[in-house]
C-alpha cells in the first residue's frame, strides 16, 4: 500500500486567481525518501501542505496510509518540519519535543522516556532543559526534527528544513537526517530548492515546474547507502545532479516522446 497517493490534485488560490498546482499525480511507497524540487512558485510547498491537510486541494484526492488526508492528520499519521524550527520559546527543549506527545495524551513517564530517546537520536543529550533561544540555528532545527519524529509517524513532511542554515551545518544535518531515516524507516517528503541536497538525500527526486505547478519528471537516485561525504564526489552523483538540472531547465517546454520514454525508464 502506498503511504501517500495523490490523484489529479489541482489547487487554485482565489486571491489573484493563481493556479498553484495543476493535475498532480504522485505515489509514495513505504520507506521512500522523495524530494520535491523546483523554482519558487512551482507549488512544492503547497503540495506538501495539501498532503498534510493544512490546505485543502481545489480538486483531486489525497490519501495518506490509505485514509483521506483529513483523517490521517487527525490520527497523527505524519510529522512536519518547517524552514524555521517553529519552537515554542516558553517551553524547554524537552517540552518542545514532548508537545505532540502531550497532544496524543501520553502520560508523563512515557513522554519522558521518549524525549530522552529523541534527544539521543538528534545528539542533543544534555540540552533538555535549555530554552530554544539558547541554541544555534542548526540545534534548533534538530529539536524540530526530534519533535516531528517523537511519535514515530509513518510519514515525515519537511518544508525546506535546512534552507536557512549555512552550508556546513546543512551538510552535517543532511548526514544526520539520513542516518535517522535509515534507523526509523519512515517515508519522507522533502521540499528543497537545492539540487545537490535533493540528489544526496533522496531515493527519488520529483522535479516540478512553475505556473501552473506541475510535475516535470522523476529522477530515481540509485546512489548506494549509506551515503557519506564521499557520495558527493561520486561521478554518478554528478550525473544525477546534471539530470535533475536539465529537467529543471526544460520547464515550460514540452518533452519529446523519446525523452518521455527516457524519463519513464528512470522511474
Amino acid at each position: 500500500m502506498s503511504v501517500v497517493e495523490i490523484k489529479g490534485v489541482t489547487k487554485t488560490f482565489a486571491q489573484g486567481n493563481v493556479t498553484a498546482l495543476e493535475d498532480i499525480d504522485l505515489e509514495l511507497e513505504p520507506g521512500e525518501f522523495v524530494s520535491l524540487i523546483g523554482p519558487s512558485g512551482c507549488g512544492k510547498s503547497t503540495l506538501l501542505r495539501v498532503i498534510g491537510d493544512l490546505t485543502p486541494p481545489t480538486s483531486g484526492s489525497v490519501t495518506v496510509n490509505g485514509k483521506p488526508a483529513r483523517q490521517a492528520r487527525n490520527d497523527g499519521d505524519y510529522g512536519i518540519v518547517f524552514q524555521d524550527a517553529v519552537l515554542f520559546d516558553w517551553r524547554t527543549v524537552a517540552k518542545n519535543i514532548a508537545l505532540p506527545l502531550e497532544m496524543l495524551g501520553w502520560d508523563r513517564d512515557r513522554r519522558k522516556a521518549r524525549v530522552e530517546t529523541m534527544l539521543d537520536l538528534v545528539e542533543l543529550r544534555g540540552f533538555a532543559d535549555h530554552h530554544p533561544w539558547q541554541l544555534s540555528g542548526g540545534m534548533q532545527q534538530r529539536v524540530s526534527i526530534a519533535r516531528a519524529l517523537a511519535f514515530e509517524p509513518a510519514l515525515l513532511l519537511m518544508d525546506e528544513p535546512f534552507g536557512a542554515l549555512d552550508e556546513m551545518t546543512r551538510e552535517r544535518l543532511n548526514l544526520e537526517l539520513l542516518s535517522i531515516w535509515e534507523k526509523l524507516g519512515s517515508t519522507v517528503v522533502f521540499v528543497t530548492h537545492s539540487i545537490s541536497e535533493a540528489v544526496f538525500l533522496s531515493t527519488r527526486v520529483v522535479v516540478m515546474s512553475p505556473r501552473p505547478g506541475r510535475i516535470a519528471g522523476h529522477v530515481a537516485i540509485d546512489l548506494p547507502f549509506p551515503r557519506t561525504v564521499e557520495t558527493r564526489e561520486d561521478p554518478r552523483f554528478f550525473e544525477l545532479v546534471t539530470k535533475v538540472r536539465e529537467l529543471l531547465r526544460r520547464r515550460g517546454e514540452h518533452l519529446l516522446p523519446e525523452e518521455e520514454e527516457l524519463l519513464e525508464a528512470d522511474r
Binding site: 498534510g52 493544512l54 510529522g79 512536519i80 518547517f82 524555521d84 515554542f88 508537545l99 497532544m103
Partner: peptide, 19 residues
C-alpha cells in the same frame, strides 16, 4: 507557523489558545 504546527497535531481551537 505555530498555529499550523498545532493543526498538524489535530489540535482544537481551545488547545491552540491554551498552548
Amino acid at each position: 507557523r505555530q498555529i499550523e504546527l498545532m493543526r498538524s497535531y489535530a489540535a482544537s481551537e481551545l488547545e491552540i489558545w491554551r498552548r
